[in-house]
Design a protein around this nucleic acid. Sequence first.
DNA 1: TTGTAGGCGTTATCAC
DNA 2: GTGATAACGCCTACAA
Lengths: 336, 336
Amino acid sequence: MATIEDVAKLAGLSRTTVSRVINDQPYVTEEKRQRIIQAMRDLGYVPNSSARRLRSQRTETIAVLLPRITNPFFGNLIESMEEKASEWGYQVIVCQTHGSKKKELDYLQLLKTKQVDGVIMASVVNEWEEILPYLESGPIVFCNEYMDEEKVPMIHMNHRQASYEATCHLIEQGCRQIAYITGGPLSYLSTERRRGFQDALVEHGLPILEEVDIDWAIDVKDGQKAFLHIKKRFPYVDGVFTGSDEVAAGIVYEASQSDWSIPDDLAVVGFDNQMLSLLMVPSVTTVEQPVREMASRTVEVLIQQLLHPQVVVKKRHIFDYKLLIRDSTKKKVSVV
Amino acid sequence: MATIEDVAKLAGLSRTTVSRVINDQPYVTEEKRQRIIQAMRDLGYVPNSSARRLRSQRTETIAVLLPRITNPFFGNLIESMEEKASEWGYQVIVCQTHGSKKKELDYLQLLKTKQVDGVIMASVVNEWEEILPYLESGPIVFCNEYMDEEKVPMIHMNHRQASYEATCHLIEQGCRQIAYITGGPLSYLSTERRRGFQDALVEHGLPILEEVDIDWAIDVKDGQKAFLHIKKRFPYVDGVFTGSDEVAAGIVYEASQSDWSIPDDLAVVGFDNQMLSLLMVPSVTTVEQPVREMASRTVEVLIQQLLHPQVVVKKRHIFDYKLLIRDSTKKKVSVV
DNA sequence: TTGTAGGCGTTATCAC
DNA sequence: GTGATAACGCCTACAA
């Protein structure tokens, strides 16, 4: 593999001059510049990025931490992030934590070992105290997940309010016994969602169904199981709020295989506006997040911090959600 | 940031000895080893990976090229690849080409600049002649996509045969006017699929409907459009083979909004066995690929090549598919 | 305008 | 067992 030295020799010039040409710097005669360019071509020279990294102390790479890519929400997120990062000449490393605290810390280690310049956390399972020390080694930005902290920028929606609004919608449709179905690791975000849900119930004087504690539902199969569970053990439930379109789809699907009718026997609200939610029969009411915009903003915020480390950045970037009302909640007998 | 030098000083030893401890090498007294470990702790020392890369000429990073992550097939693929790579201590860089030849070559450049040790191409849009030169800089492995080449390992299914079988199934169900719906960039794989489709038609003496040339369908929306297009312009079509479950889902969905019935007016076969295909009403007949196994094997093949460059590896790894027959093709009046 | 030389942090070689 | 030294390939004061 040709090095800068080889090019210099072939062109009969010094490494310095070659380096100037590589980096488009001035103070090189056009004639020598051409000679060097020719030499680089002849040798098939390409600058070695490891050497550059060592020298510059920068990797132009960022890590994106998320639970798993096949969750469409995170898939969309990283798709947009990669596109944006690529525009700025940055590489993206995928870091699937699968909700494991250890894996999360292992991947944060990339920051300490200087394998990446910065980290985006789209999911957070460790406590803040665990994460804080890594901040010494480079910037961290939260996206989607958030906390009561002001040390790192956070790009997200108000999940508490979104859940509140979704639940109010169920109540307006006449639901009185509403179950909360969730899954995945506990986090600030998931707590916020639950709070919003309970806010709405309390405000309307409705009971919080402590007995229906389904906290293990994360995908379509789980949704199907959850439906059967409810039908069998808590048949009085007439509405469900779940933080996942996949779970909602599972419920809708399994209901269609039973004698229950959605939404009349059971109204269902999902979250994220996945394609699935629109294609189900009945279509699923859901909360839409501006995924692409959040992803794009997150990358911008991180890269700006990398380019201008001293500048104090805005810490909160709150995006708007949108409740998309579809057939899974449009009860025939609606109570207003 | 503490360096190996700092640790050495604090422990009152040389960099060499510290390096030995870091790399678990013998020939260090237990007492000194402990002193060094303590010093590393005190300083919060972490080896700098850029320096290691430069020294070792290895990055322990691989690049995965694919069109876009949100295509669930590729999402699943990279999910499994990241997991496998992580087991071996390798990082994965996401490279979305969006079917662009230029982007594909740009990402292959990562190999030349030594930012990655190897490349997995899960999609290929350039000609082989364009790709070949990059092979000098490191190993490339194909997964999913393939070619008539023996220079790089290829992990894939026999798409021609899968399409052939799927089409035969449509014919057995009584379809006589079968449309082929495709999309995305032309490639060896897409050509193979078309061949398999035509093989079946020819073998059964059925017409190839040249007039129905839908080659622009890649997602659900396109599927919906395609259905309307067929219904309006080619109402005699009674079967559709499409290389995408999303397109199939769009067709099924749009049909359900019309007076056509699936499968009796139109039988539909998709590809990939996405969750979608199972949840649609009617559920969609599709071809299942062993995605996780292919992904996992691909990473293994690549890493083995990195670890043992001289060993000649098996070039073809052909996996089995499975035709999953569901409601979208079970015509009531089936002709055998 | 061009070149010399040192150092980024690590590890392999060789001498002690 | 341990340490001095060179080298990986690049960039950049500083000198000329």
